[in-house]
Design a protein around this nucleic acid. Structure first.
Lengths: 209, 209
DNA sequence: AGCATTTTTTAATACAGATTCATATTCGAG
DNA sequence: CTCGAATATGAATCTGTATTAAAAAATGCT
């Protein structure tokens, strides 16, 4: 099952995700990946056909994992959870996963538009599913009447995703707690989306203490 | 004046900004830069010591130009313009410049954390000035009382800049008017930042910690 | 243990671009 | 219009990294 071989492959992939997330596509060297994985560089070729194939798998996994993680977090909410609260949970899950949990996610977000076009297809398909998921979240809220009619929800969704994705470029855990970032992002959504009102306390996910 | 030489140098720089903004640091080839500039690749070395020096100059110019453009747009407002309106103008200027006007700005935003560290110092100094400018804008609004006390303005500012910077990753002029994007971004700021009445029957204005 | 297969290593090669060089062309002052 | 300096080119080189190849080591099966 978790054979030696499978574990080595995983170590290489993890190392690639880490290096890619820190150095970016241009700065990633197979030598460093190998070193982090505790292996010699040519060993990588036993598992991957090329550097680009390795990168593609990291990028795909990152896009996939974020999507699954966020979808599951939302799916785990009790039935009848308000659409806006689902969005709050999605914001929380996206930021936590991207910033605290997964190098794959970080790598995927930072490098999506920096890798050669030939590598983008599979990851892009995942991103498309993810984007669709968010669209559904917002449409449910709109249908319910939580989102004011005069908001261009699609554009706002893009801005929100952008704000969250860009956090990897500036956030440092030693400077600011992640909880604060999440709280502000959620606040921004709630206030932008709703019609001049804030939901009853106790319902929304509010991670201020 | 605008000697032939100076014009050629400018053409090369413009070409580099264009290629860098589209292909990213990893994808930029001196061959393509030369082709766009209408020159042979080695000619670049008459004006720049290396590929990286060329990149650094583009990055610096991008960071510098955005800053100047936005600062001037704000400075051009009538005396006594409300702090919040200054912020709105800054949002407008930043997005317009980044998306419609300057390849340098686009290149600088997209590649800031993708170029080798050795190239980051000069551009980073510009970014720091720009960041400081935004801090001042928000502090003026806070001092005036426009920004609600319970908002973590610093974090919000970072999220806002991120949302705006990320627009280069998804916006396509043929899909959505830039004016709409700007309007939504401004709306997001206004609603997040200002103190709105809470419609929460039976309870007074709620205060978050 | 002995042997075939899988995995990993060390040493060699390939290659895409950046960079240099020697030479040609263009420019502009006189 | 001419000649020295500035600018640009084509062909050659250099370099860092990815990639292969050949050999060695580890694994696991009977």
């Amino acid at each position: 099952m978790a054979s030696k071989s499978e574990k080595t492959r995983k170590r290489i992939l993890d190392a690639a995700a880490s290096v890619l997330s820190q150095r970016g596509y241009a700065g990633m060297r197979l030598g460093e990946v190998a070193q982090v994985a505790g292996v010699q560089a040519p060993a990588i070729y036993y598992y991957f056909a090329s550097r680009d194939e390795l990168v593609e798998e990291v990028m795909w996994a990152g896009a996939h994992d974020v999507r699954i993680h966020v979808e599951e977090a939302v799916a785990a909410l009790p039935d009848g959870t308000a659409p806006l609260d689902r969005i709050m949970t999605a914001v929380d899950a996206h930021l936590r996963y991207e910033l605290e949990i997964s190098d794959y996610a970080t790598a995927s977000i930072r490098n999506a538009r920096h890798v050669p076009e030939a590598l983008r297809d599979r990851p892009a398909a995942e991103e498309s599913l993810y984007s669709h998921f968010w669209r559904d979240l917002f449409e449910a809220a709109k249908k319910e009447g939580t989102i004011r009619d005069d908001l261009d929800a699609t554009t706002f969704r893009m801005l929100l995703l952008g704000a969250m994705n860009w956090v990897v470029e500036w956030w440092r855990p030693e400077t600011r707690g992640l909880d604060e970032v999440i709280a502000v992002a959620q606040d921004m959504v709630r206030r932008t989306v709703t019609d001049q009102e804030v939901r009853d306390p106790g319902r929304g996910r509010r991670s201020l203490s």
